Simulated scan of single mutants.
Amino acid sequence: MRWIVFFDGDCAFCSSSTRLLARLDWHDRVRLSPLQGELAKSKGLAMHEDPADDTMVVFRESDGQAFYHSSGWLELMRVLGFPFNLALVLKVVPRPWLDALYRWIARNRYRWFGKADHCSLPEEAVVRRLL
């Protein structure tokens, strides 16, 4: 089974997070695509490219299910497997609280980490996963 992580290609934090994700995806289950790209539009996810909205959408190809906000992050931790799936213990925290934390980080990501004003050459592990 394969998952696609749609990320904000204009966000420095999101871009560096995708590089980290590519290194941590030991089972080669995840592919990457910017929310501003054609694939996101074809999957009906273009509305999430607005910086005021999501920063990441995890899309499961087998059934077309999309995971947003903290659910997307938790699904990604599950997909990565041990030890990352230990984060699933956070499911005991009410989802509105996790989503509020996720949205707070999303709202402040440009202020804290900046915007990607240039395209850095991605690592080979990232290039291999880009769709």
Score class of each variant (00 low, 15 high):
2 R>H: 10
8 D>G: 11
8 D>C: 12
8 D>V: 04
9 G>Q: 06
11 C>H: 01
12 A>G: 10
14 C>H: 01
15 S>T: 12
15 S>E: 13
16 S>H: 09
18 T>Y: 02
23 R>F: 06
24 L>I: 10
26 W>Q: 14
30 V>L: 14
36 Q>A: 08
38 E>T: 11
39 L>H: 05
41 K>Q: 14
41 K>C: 07
44 G>F: 11
44 G>P: 01
45 L>N: 01
45 L>C: 09
48 H>A: 11
49 E>V: 00
50 D>Y: 02
52 A>R: 00
54 D>S: 15
56 M>C: 08
57 V>R: 01
62 S>P: 03
63 D>K: 00
67 F>A: 04
73 W>G: 15
73 W>R: 00
75 E>H: 04
76 L>P: 02
78 R>S: 12
79 V>G: 03
79 V>L: 08
83 P>I: 05
84 F>Y: 14
84 F>K: 00
84 F>I: 06
85 N>Q: 12
88 L>G: 05
93 V>M: 12
93 V>A: 10
96 P>T: 09
100 A>V: 05
102 Y>Q: 06
103 R>C: 13
105 I>G: 09
106 A>M: 07
107 R>H: 12
107 R>M: 13
108 N>D: 11
111 R>V: 11
112 W>E: 15
113 F>D: 13
113 F>N: 11
116 A>P: 01
116 A>V: 09
118 H>C: 13
119 C>V: 12
122 P>S: 10
128 R>D: 10
129 R>H: 09
130 L>W: 08
